[in-house]
Amino acid sequence: MVSYKEIQASNALINDATAPRVAVFVGGTSGIGKFTISALVATGASTRIYLVGRRSSEERMRAFIQELHAINPKAEVIWTEGEIALLAETRRVCEIIKSKESRLDLLFLSAGYAPFDGRNETTEGIEITQSLEYYSRMLFILQLLPILSKAEAPRVVSVLGGGLERETSINLDDLDLKKPGNFSGVNAQVQYVAMNTVTLDKLASDNPEVTFCHTWPGWVSTGNVRRGVVANSIWGWFVRLLLDPIISLVAFRDEESGQRHLFQSTSAAFGGRGVPWQGKPGQNSLEQQANGLFLVNYKCDCTPNAKVLPLLREKALKKVWDHTNEVLGPYL
């Protein structure tokens, strides 16, 4: 485990030279994304952050942005409205960013929640959480790769469940879990985690100049466990009376979660570039590359998931990649 003191010491080295000059946070209106933005701004470094969120969050985020500016006037936080569960909206937001920036140092993806209220689809016919946790994230990456590749040490961080993959995680006969009986909150989360890892591993192999991290944050009291839960359902009562109190007891504090994810977003422990790191370097999924996919857990330790990932490459990669390109093709 990388101790919290080590993480704080690393983050204390972030300055104008080592901070991401341009960052995009998708899912930064609450939870881990918001905590990480606060941690980055609090370094005092000069940085420009695109904060992407729904229109309903704008008023609350304007107040948050004012607070950040008071903490660090050198940090510019730009509110960018978009309903990113919709792939057409994701493409629109990416076009806005690309029209303004020639390079991108950090893409931080943390939007999503567990779909324990059952299957609900967007107007584009995609299950909402699968769009947020997988399709939209991959579309952001593919759309922004041209400007990521122009940065000195570009990094993509996807916050979900890196390292939790299993050989049987992906239902290859029903990648969108549309067939009767296949969809549940647990099945969906397991499938979306593994699809993230398989595709990010492919992208890391194809883009060796970019560092990719798929992180498992552990318990963090973000409130997302309640999102989408029907208030008076059995699951709603379970969350309210049992799960929420347990999370509150064992979860990382907001500040520590933000610091840990800032470390993952900036430290040379992941990819050999970034803020200097004297500790043990993280191990990525591609032994032949300095960069690759880093599966990072809540202790900021890495696992190559060496028994599972090769099997997923062999059995699932082509089908997942082909299907992903079929879904995203109209938006690329």
Results as ranks from 00 to 15, higher is better:
215 T>R: 03
248 S>F: 02
204 A>C: 01
256 E>A: 13
225 V>D: 10
226 R>W: 13
181 G>P: 07
203 L>N: 02
181 G>E: 02
202 K>D: 05
185 G>S: 13
262 L>M: 01
225 V>Y: 15
265 S>T: 10
185 G>D: 02
257 S>P: 00
262 L>A: 04
220 V>F: 10
238 F>W: 09
189 Q>G: 03
182 N>T: 14
249 L>P: 00
227 R>P: 01
219 W>I: 06
261 H>N: 07
261 H>G: 00
191 Q>A: 11
232 N>Y: 14
191 Q>I: 03
264 Q>T: 11
216 W>V: 08
266 T>E: 02
264 Q>R: 14
244 D>C: 14
247 I>A: 14
199 T>D: 02
253 R>V: 02
216 W>N: 02
237 W>L: 06
192 Y>N: 10
181 G>A: 04
248 S>R: 09
209 E>G: 11
211 T>Q: 00
202 K>R: 15
192 Y>D: 11
221 S>L: 14
197 T>F: 00
202 K>Q: 14
255 E>N: 02
220 V>K: 03
230 V>P: 04
224 N>M: 14
263 F>V: 05
189 Q>D: 11
199 T>L: 10
185 G>M: 12
255 E>A: 05
217 P>C: 06
254 D>H: 13
220 V>Y: 12
225 V>H: 09
259 Q>M: 04
248 S>V: 07
243 L>E: 01
195 M>E: 00
256 E>F: 15
202 K>I: 03
230 V>G: 10
202 K>F: 13
261 H>D: 07
261 H>V: 09
213 C>V: 14
206 D>W: 12
193 V>R: 11
264 Q>S: 00
205 S>Q: 06
244 D>Q: 10
250 V>N: 03
226 R>M: 14
263 F>A: 02
187 N>L: 00
182 N>S: 14
187 N>Y: 06
230 V>F: 03
231 A>S: 14
197 T>M: 10
237 W>R: 11
203 L>R: 07
186 V>N: 05
239 V>A: 11
188 A>F: 03
235 W>S: 09
258 G>V: 10
228 G>P: 01
252 F>E: 11
183 F>S: 10
188 A>Y: 01
224 N>I: 05
237 W>C: 09
230 V>I: 12
227 R>W: 06
186 V>E: 01
238 F>K: 04
216 W>H: 15
186 V>M: 01
198 V>S: 03
213 C>N: 06
265 S>Q: 08
240 R>C: 07
215 T>F: 13
247 I>L: 06
209 E>S: 05
226 R>P: 07
212 F>K: 07
223 G>E: 07
255 E>I: 07
217 P>W: 10
181 G>T: 06
214 H>F: 03
261 H>R: 10
196 N>W: 06
184 S>E: 06
253 R>S: 13
207 N>F: 09
222 T>G: 12
266 T>H: 09
220 V>A: 05
211 T>K: 02
187 N>W: 09
262 L>R: 12
231 A>Y: 15
193 V>E: 03
213 C>T: 00
217 P>H: 09
196 N>K: 04
263 F>S: 04
185 G>L: 02
202 K>M: 11
233 S>N: 02
239 V>T: 15
210 V>R: 04
234 I>V: 11
185 G>A: 05
209 E>M: 04
236 G>V: 03
227 R>C: 11
229 V>F: 15
258 G>M: 05
222 T>C: 04
200 L>P: 01
231 A>M: 03
249 L>S: 05
239 V>Y: 09
241 L>W: 07
